[in-house]
Design a protein around this nucleic acid. Structure first.
Lengths: 361, 361
DNA sequence: TTGTAGGCGTTATCAA
DNA sequence: TTGATAACGCCTACAA
């Protein structure tokens, strides 16, 4: 031990008397127990202690036992902050989510958190309320030296390049760019909608309507376009489109708007997500005394657990959440380990859930 | 500038040519821009740069302008990790949540996140699946030097003392100990249940039943006890009690169990949360062709947004989520600022939501 | 295998 | 007000 550090750290817990420390993890002076403290008590160097806590390091069994015993005795845990500073890896990942009104996102968050946990990585959560907050938040993310970012919120190209320039891997969840290379996990929104339209069309529906999410939602736009494209191919033109905000009330309001407009009453309503579809069903049944699906078919998208509740039994497209979340986690971590991996997109097909909210027979 | 640091940092961005850096926030060698880089370009000392980024520091306007200009030019942002190391404050707070099946928790998480954001504090999220994971997680929390912890998960006294010994402020959300001093924000569960029972009793209900949450849930136990206590006071004995797990399916199953047991059919079912109450309603209506509330009254607890959906219009107790979350945030941050504050408990009354799932007339 | 010493990027302390 | 210098707690060559 160097003279300097010996002098610097003359805690009253010198050598012996380490028996009954009431304050596990703290020195008698109320400071955090560091590797130096462990080293002093164990009579070894600080670097030895450090090595004992590094998985593949070269340490003798004797040394490791000695150090670990003392470490446990003192309640020592390496300081992740200090480690991050020197190693350049924080073992933290930022998860950016803005759309919490959509019930889908909490479920996503749980899955992501689970996946990262398994890898010993921690989630720094960033929730957005207004898109305008994004830039301030990006600075925060950068300041905390996260190893990577998963964004389920829309970012501009400029914002994407913010991370790119800085070498921070970024994986989008259900958003992407056509002409800008970014890594992304997506559910194939268009395909899903086309499946729904096909099923509805095959069952003889004539008057289609669409309820979209917020117009600035990429997912909503893709879903809407998917449905409209397929409808056009089937010769359906002038399909009424009403805008919602992904929330229950907006689904209700949108259905009301459809019914009260001059156009013909719909017999099939395609909603950009499950929650609005549920709102839609409630409006149809309780405000207009319509039977679902006999009078009107209503379909959603997401496969949220609420959609399966027996008052709704929603016909919808189930996004394979666990699979997509796991894919996002591993795609990100791969890029954390190896920054040279090129951007990659993985697109998963949704699974058609028949439910009972659409007449398909 | 010292000779040493001048030698160490001889980036090719010396002095001039700072005009068009493609790599904002990175040096030409691909390293993070540090305060030294800013200092060199601006021709000032590193500590001057540091001061310019500290709110109440004593810096001349001229200095601040010069530094800030260069900082912006280079895309410099102070490294929060390094700051945490020296300052002992990470500006991160751990939020521990285990009960994600309960729809109440995502909404809580958003509110907490919002509150901390406003204070420039970041949320490190810890989700628990099994109670057994707790200890490993506590070590993680400690390693990251969080400034405080909010736990909506149950912790043992030992686990609480883990933080106490280390001087990390802890605030519980909706859990507490009777004989161990901890800070906590609670909704008055007992009181809420008593209100519900009174309303149901006043409307002439005779056959009460209770569906509980998991037996190891403190909140569920309090709610159940609150209801049972009041019922006993009203002379109702032998109230059937069935255990659920807070989930929709368990609410359905529990109702089924109630109906199929030998005991008399209930005319009032008290559920430990909204989601189970919803499951219960669906079972009553769709499996037993009962009318709610004419044949059976069903009440929940929480005031989740789904309970208000028009298929349910749940009669329930609304926990004042925003208020409670804000209280939790400020209670925690107060203790981060001043560690000497004694533990405190704040208990908020729930708000009775009349709904239409209970006959109260 | 073990110890020494330097550095990660800040903030804090003290002279100047 | 500014600048040099010492922490903060750890990891990592490099030397022993």
């Amino acid at each position: 031990m160097s003279e300097v550090s010996a002098k610097k750290r003359q805690g009253s817990r010198g050598g012996k008397s380490t028996g009954s420390s009431r304050m596990l993890g703290m020195t008698d002076e109320g400071k955090r127990v560091t590797s130096y403290d462990v080293a002093r008590v164990a009579g070894v160097s600080q670097s030895a202690v450090s090595r004992c806590f590094k998985p593949g390091a070269s340490v003798s069994k004797k040394m490791r036992d000695k150090v670990m015993t003392v470490a446990k005795e003192l309640g020592f845990q390496p300081n992740a902050i200090a480690r991050s500073l020197i190693s350049g890896r924080s073992n933290m990942v930022a998860v950016i989510i803005n759309n919490f009104t959509n019930l889908y996102y909490p479920e996503l968050l749980v899955q992501l958190s689970r996946g990262f946990d398994e890898r010993g990585v921690h989630v720094l959560l960033f929730t957005l309320e207004h898109e305008s907050d994004v830039d301030k938040m990006l600075d925060q993310v950068w300041q905390y030296q996260v190893d990577g970012v998963i964004s389920a919120a829309r970012l501009s190209e400029e914002q994407v390049s913010f991370f790119e320039e800085r070498g921070v891997p970024l994986v989008f969840y259900n958003r992407s760019f056509q002409d800008y290379p970014v890594s992304a996990i997506c559910c194939n929104q268009e395909e899903g909608e086309r499946v729904l339209v096909n099923k509805l069309d095959a069952a003889g529906h004539k008057a289609f309507s669409i309820i979209t999410g917020p117009t600035d939602s990429m997912v909503s736009n893709q879903r809407t376009q998917g449905a409209l494209n397929r409808l056009k191919e089937l010769g359906k033109k002038s399909v009424p489109v009403v805008e919602g905000d992904y929330g229950y009330d907006s689904g209700r309001a949108a259905f009301r708007e459809l019914m009260e407009s001059k156009k013909k009453i719909p017999d099939a309503v395609i909603c950009a997500n499950d929650v609005m579809a549920i709102g839609c069903m409630d409006a149809a049944r309780h405000e207009f005394d319509l039977r679902v699906p006999e009078d009107v078919s209503i379909v959603g998208f997401d496969g949220t657990s609420t959609g399966a509740w027996s008052s709704y039994r929603l016909t919808t497209i189930d996004q394979p959440l666990e699979i997509m979340a796991e894919a996002a986690v591993s795609m990100l971590m791969d890029r954390v380990e190896n920054r040279d991996l090129p951007p990659e997109k993985r697109s998963f097909s949704g699974v058609f859930l028949e439910g009972e909210s659409a007449r398909l027979g």
